[in-house]
Design a binder for these strands. Structure first.
Lengths: 101, 101
DNA sequence: GAGGATGTTCGACGATTGTCGAACAAGGGT
DNA sequence: ACCCTTGTTCGACAATCGTCGAACATCCTC
């Protein structure tokens, strides 16, 4: 059961943007941007675990994250290097919760 | 009938991203990024004028464009300065049709 | 004023999306 | 072996979205 982690360059830009254009997923990405990897269950943003699993799948299939299985947990991390290389400025522009004038 | 051009800072980031996460709208934005202003009818991307009008409305209400009425035409332009100030790097990351390594 | 050009608005439609509970799968601990 | 924890998958549902044709509104030019 391969985890469907596409080459980021093969993902349409609109798919990357669509993956980021959701409040829950954006919160996940912001949490991931702290660095390191986190188990799926650590993202408590008021949705059921089914929904959370769905959002993580969207992020993974958009090429934004990688997942590593370990025991019963699955650790998720942001593909920041590739993102910054392919879309410089995108993450930074999107990560700040509120931008002053 | 005011044209609903919100303060960009008041638009949720997800709404800005969602506005860009569509192929037709992204083509429009890329055309607009050439600079200057264009009448609505100049965006011929294989959709009906009703659909085109809809997409331009989405872009406008996401704070991405401004519209100026002149005669029977309405001229659209990209709010590039504000976008680059509020989301530095976003447009640049998204505008290139293909990103080299 | 009649006619044409340019856009917008109004349903309507199919498709996609976000959400959930329930069922399922796989591992770890006792 | 059992059970609990962690995640995924499977319908199902409501809501939203992209699309269109048709009708409408405005303005410009004869």
């Amino acid at each position: 059961m391969e985890p469907h982690e596409p080459d980021l360059a093969a993902v349409p830009v609109t798919a990357v943007l669509a993956a980021l254009a959701d409040d829950v997923r954006l919160q996940i990405v912001r949490a991931l941007a702290e660095g390191g990897e986190y188990p799926c269950g650590s993202f408590e943003f008021g949705v059921s675990k089914a929904t959370r699993s769905h959002h993580l799948k969207v992020l993974r299939e958009a090429g934004l994250t990688r997942t590593r299985a370990a025991g019963t947990s699955r650790y998720v991390r942001l593909r920041r290097d590739e993102l910054d290389r392919l879309y410089p400025g995108l993450l930074n522009a999107v990560l700040s919760p509120r931008t002053p004038a």
